[in-house]
Design a protein around this nucleic acid. Structure first.
Lengths: 210, 210
DNA sequence: AATTGTGAACCTCTTCACAGCT
DNA sequence: AGCTGTGAAGAGGTTCACAATT
């Protein structure tokens, strides 16, 4: 047992979760794998395979109950409770995240900004306090921070990572444009808008090439 | 010929590109596939396969010249020239992108913000003008905008998409938390920080589950 | 001696197709 | 009759392993 789940399945569950939210808002009570697939631009077999990994949530001949399925996915993804985040780096990205509506909607709560700049320490940004970076390990424990967000320049990414790991953090979202090294039991996700644009320029470039 | 390139390869090229920049800054002239792999946490065979798709850039026994390889990757990804972006939605995300350093570094130039709010139209944010959303089609041509960025609420994402497509845009970066539909020849990339966090909470949740 | 470039083997993810429910 | 759940087939991506080259 315990077949491993595909990373891509997790991402698709998040997509289904949002599509279901939309359907519920529109007053729809049931949905077929075909409809869901159409909404997200994939195949219905993919939708069913993804869901079947976690259980049988549908009714043959009828489809899925939107509210029920959304709730099941919320449980799978751990979205039935709030999560505490700590953002390292009170620069543009760090501050922008404090205003990010989709985090609030999902109960991802930014408990603290950490920065080494004395001018920033002690201030607050839209209700999020800026703390001294050097006191991060204690504060992570005190504030029950579970997810670390790296929003510092590339040069400092590894140093910040090490400090987060020392502080017991097991999940990191890295906005710095550099790969970071972590122990096996720490999960890292990369977020780099420029890389997404580069995957677009690759294709735009192609049109005029050859 | 013309075997299709894997999407994942494109993303890894962007990673190599950044790692090579770092090596060059450190004064390193050559690098092996092993070193590059180590930096990005993948296998050396993967690095060589990725590169060999586009040509033979290395020297057997010696490795790759860092400057040369970085230049080759820049050409593959279309990074040897600047690209003009237009951002739809002058809210938190749209404004944050105007300050995003990694865009500037890569010569991704935000030529315009588009918004329907009369209070915002005519103002400017750190040098980027806010234009009337209704005049977008003309302005996209006038300003030579090649890449559209969607930074509006989910409800408006498809409407904005359609308008971008009508205006001749072939590449879209979508920050709205909703899937969008485009013709086959238009490339879309999704950027949703919450989804990345959800792929982390899935794993965090697991530790306490079962 | 070291390291690339690559066909073949391997593995993982997606799609097919249909039996099984409702 | 309609739609799910899933084993099997197919497609796609990664790793192995080694000949080729410097």
């Amino acid at each position: 047992m315990d077949k491993k789940i595909a990373e891509s399945t997790i991402y698709r569950l998040s997509r289904y979760y949002r599509s279901l939210g939309h359907l519920i808002e529109m007053g729809q009570d049931t949905v077929s794998s075909d409809d869901l697939a159409e909404m997200d631009g994939i195949t219905s077999a993919q939708v069913r395979k993804d869901l079947s990994f976690f259980g049988s949530f549908g009714k043959r001949g009828l489809g899925y109950n939107t509210r029920l399925l959304r709730q099941q996915i919320a449980e799978i993804l751990g979205l039935t409770r709030s999560w505490n985040l700590g953002v390292v780096g009170a620069g543009n990205i760090g501050r922008a995240l404090c205003d990010y509506q989709e985090f609030k909607r999902q109960n991802f709560i930014i408990k603290a900004l950490f920065d080494a700049d004395p001018d920033k320490i002690g201030t607050d940004y839209h209700g999020v306090k800026v703390y001294d970076y050097h006191k991060m390990p204690e504060l992570i424990k005190e504030l029950n921070i579970e997810i670390g967000v790296i929003a510092v320049p590339a040069e400092r990414a590894q140093e910040v990572t090490d400090k987060l790991v020392e502080s017991g953090i097991k999940a990191i979202l890295n906005f710095a444009p550099r790969s970071i090294k972590v122990p096996e039991d720490v999960k890292v996700r990369y977020e780099n808008m420029a890389i997404e644009v580069e995957s677009l320029t690759y294709y735009l470039r192609e049109r005029f090439g050859k």
